[in-house]
Structures are given as structure tokens and as C-alpha cells.
Design a protein around this nucleic acid. Structure first.
Lengths: 234, 234
DNA sequence: AATTAACTGTGTCCATGGGACGCTATTTAG
DNA sequence: CTAAATAGCGTCCCATGGACACAGTTAATT
């Protein structure tokens, strides 16, 4: 319980100020985070343990604690490493294109690192890179008559949608994981209990490409924002 | 790894068919799930262990395994118990009011059981109650010109938004938890690096009630859906 | 009523996980 | 050259999820 949140903040926001005396560190936060990401990409966040990360680097578990206060901070570093610098603003001018591009980039991120979904639940301190992403989307909405909180709310709305879609996409993926692909089990379940879930049974009858869901919600959100912006500026 | 997903499905979807011979079970899935929910409500999902749940019921850890194949299934039962029967459709007629009410109810659920946010990440089998909630929202959209997949996508969109808001609300809550309330740490951070996050710094300058965020996104989504429906039916 | 099969609750054991602590080796400021 | 500071490591502890075998209990069958 004594995680001392301040430590985590410093680790994410301030370069670790290399010491003058003593042996040279053989590791670095970057290498440690990269090793964690590698494991998480391959086997999921659950497979990331101090042991495994250290093992991948040919060090012992306890060595890592010279660099990282605890596992929570390791995961935070992994998130920053995986998120990376926010993609440069696309040169197309409209806010709508900007947001659409941003959402697609974010979706790609969740596809490449599905464990980000697990690593970014719950109260946590965001790092500069993650905040950079947020900055990008809020900036894209500048100067269209929305208030500050409204711009933030719009960002949360967009991010929440992408998250939801990514989660659903992950569940549907075969993955090689022992999870009998969820759709394969949920579909028959709904059909077997069609009396209790008539609307679901009807809605699930048609099959279509999965990527539709991202764009569908995206267009709805953008339409809604456009309506508000028109009301404000017109 | 041998979780045998089928077991979990049966546990959620088929009543456990009480045996004819042998001693009467002193416990029940309901009591076990309730105990788990009690602990999670009080101390978070991380505090839920077989030991603690069993201890709360004055049983030993291993007794639970007579009822539940493993911890994953325990959590699934807890989710079903916490989610409860979907709220009855409100009697106001419009789909818009229906969806608004549904979203608010879901938000209330996440407020009362914040650990639901942790328990409902990642691929998992949904129980009948959870599917009942989904059914409600899909049903509300019946007969307005949307295709089946579109209705599903709309549901995911709405649920994703509520989730995102709930997550953000939880992070802002003081909680008594040792987490230095995130906003209190993130605000100054953004302000200190205002050069790197100009849009964020500007957007965060104004403070307002937190509940705005839920309704803001909700109205945007509903506006977007309304535009689509108008296009389809008009 | 006696037998027996099925079932319940439990005690013991193991592997894995995060983390505390102290020791030794190394490097550089003075 | 010496001493302070720091790096990596070995050992220990505790909590957790779970396997497994065992003894007590109950009801269907004989």
C-alpha cells in the first residue's frame, strides 16, 4: 500500500538524473519498459512479472527494483513506451478529419498492444506521452465555440468509444488463446434463449465486418459534435 | 490455463441442478457471490481473494472450489449479482428517452460498484443479466430503420461512453484511497508543462460539475443517432 | 435396516507472485 | 588513496490460486 504515488509521478515526468558516484547502471528504464512491452505483446499483461522481465534482460528480479519502485510503476512505463509520441496532426484542415484520424490511430494502438486495455483501467497517473495524445484531440477542437470542459468531454467521449470497440474486437479475435472465441459461444447462447433476448437475436442475425463498429460510432459522435458546433457558431 | 470455458458458461447460464445424494450443500452460489460483492464494494476487486470470501462466510478457502471452478468464475458470478436484473423500460415512449434512462442507470451501477470497471475488461462470457441490459438498449432502437449490426454498434457506443465517464469519475473521487486524487496531481502537472500542452491547459482552466461529462457525451451520441434515424426514415 | 455410491467440507502441499532487507562489489569525489 | 555512494544479487517472507486426497454425511438401492 505504500506506493508513494509521488515516486511514480517523478519517474514518468522527470528524467532519472543519473548519479555521479557509484557503479554505472547496466540497465535503463527504456530497456526495462521495452522488455515488459515485449512480454505483454506476446503473452498479455498477466504474463508480465518482475521475474520474467528480469529474465528477458538476463538480470535478477531484485535488480529491477533499483530502477522501478514497484510493478505499478513498471506498467506505467510500459504504457508510455507503447503509446509513444502522439501522431503528428494530419494536414487536412477540418476538425472532423483530425478527430477521425486520431481515433483511427488510437484504435491501431489498441490493436497492436491489446494489453493496453488492461493497463489503462483504474485510477492512475498519466505520463507525458499519454497526455500528448489527449492534447492533440483537444487542440483539434480549439476555436469552434466549445467551452474548455466541453472539449475535454468530447475527448473522453471519443476515447471511450475507441476503447469499447477495441475491447469488443479483442474478444472476437481468435488469438490462439484458450478462450473459445467469445462470439462463437455468445451467438448460440443468444439464439438458444431467443425468447428472453428477442431484440438481440434479431440484431445478431446479420454478420458483417467488424471494423464497421468503429466507424459507425465515430460518425455518430462526429455528427453530434457537428450539430453542437453549428448551433454555437451559427 | 485449463479453465475450461464451458464450465463458466454452464455456471452462469444453467442452474446448478442440485444433486440427489450426499450431504446438503451448506453454501450457495448466491451467498458466495454476495460475499464477493461485499468485499469488492468495500475494498475493491483486488481485495477479493478466495481466502477473504471464504472467511467472510466462515468457511475455508477450499470449500469454495466445490461451488466455483476458479476465481474467474467467481468474478463472473459477482458481476451478474451486482448487475442485477435490467431496469424495466421506462414508460416514456421515445427511443431517445429510453436510451438516456438506460445510460443513467448504467452509470449509477458503475458508481455503486466501481470494481465493475475492473471486472468487465478483457474477453469474458457474459451472463444472462448482463445480456439483459444489452437487450434493453437494442430493443429500444427497434423499428427506426437501423440494421441489426447498427443497433448493436449503437449499444456498444453508448456503453463505451458510460464506461469512460465512470472511469474518469472514479479517478477523481477522493475514495479515501492513498491515490493522491488524480485531478489534484494532474492539474498542476499540466499547468507546469503548459508549453507542451497548451490546449489542455486552456481546457482545464474552468472547473465545473463532473456529472456534466456524462450528459454531454450522451446528448452528442443521441444527436448523432437522431440524424441517422432521420436520414433513414425520412 | 444395512449397504454403498455420491457428495461435502477440509487439511496439506506446491508454484508463483510482489516485495523487504542486507551484503558485496564497484566507481568516483575529495 | 580512501571513503561515500550506488549497483546487482541472494535470501527471506507473505499472500495468492489451485491440486489432491481424506474423512464425514446423506440418500437411493438392496
Amino acid at each position: 500500500m505504500g506506493g508513494e504515488a509521488n515516486e511514480g509521478v517523478r519517474l514518468l515526468w522527470e528524467p532519472p538524473a543519473k548519479p555521479s558516484r557509484g557503479p554505472k547502471p547496466a540497465l535503463s528504464l527504456e530497456r526495462i519498459a521495452a522488455a515488459g512491452v515485449e512480454i505483454a505483446d506476446a503473452e498479455g499483461l498477466g504474463a508480465v512479472s518482475m521475474q520474467k522481465v528480469a529474465g528477458l534482460l538476463d538480470f535478477t528480479k531484485m535488480s529491477l527494483y533499483r530502477y522501478v519502485p514497484g510493478k505499478a510503476e513498471l506498467v506505467a512505463l510500459m504504457v508510455e513506451a507503447a503509446v509513444g509520441e502522439p501522431p503528428p496532426a494530419v494536414d487536412r484542415p477540418g476538425w472532423r478529419e483530425q478527430l477521425k484520424d486520431w481515433a483511427r490511430q488510437l484504435a491501431r494502438l489498441f490493436t497492436e498492444h491489446p494489453w493496453l486495455l488492461d493497463a489503462t483501467v483504474g485510477p492512475r497517473v498519466m505520463g507525458p506521452k499519454e497526455l500528448g495524445w489527449l492534447e492533440r484531440v483537444v487542440a483539434a477542437l480549439d476555436g469552434h465555440g466549445l467551452t474548455g470542459p466541453e472539449r475535454m468531454d468530447a475527448a473522453v467521449l471519443l476515447a471511450g468509444h475507441v476503447r469499447g470497440i477495441a475491447e469488443q474486437a479483442r474478444a472476437a479475435r481468435p488469438d490462439g488463446s484458450p478462450e473459445t472465441e467469445l462470439l462463437a459461444v455468445l451467438g448460440p447462447l443468444v439464439r438458444r434463449h431467443a425468447d428472453r433476448f428477442p431484440a438481440l437475436a434479431a440484431a445478431m442475425s446479420a454478420q458483417d465486418g467488424r471494423d464497421q463498429a468503429l466507424d459507425f460510432g465515430l460518425e455518430r459522435i462526429l455528427d453530434g459534435l457537428e450539430a453542437l458546433i453549428a448551433r454555437r457558431t451559427g
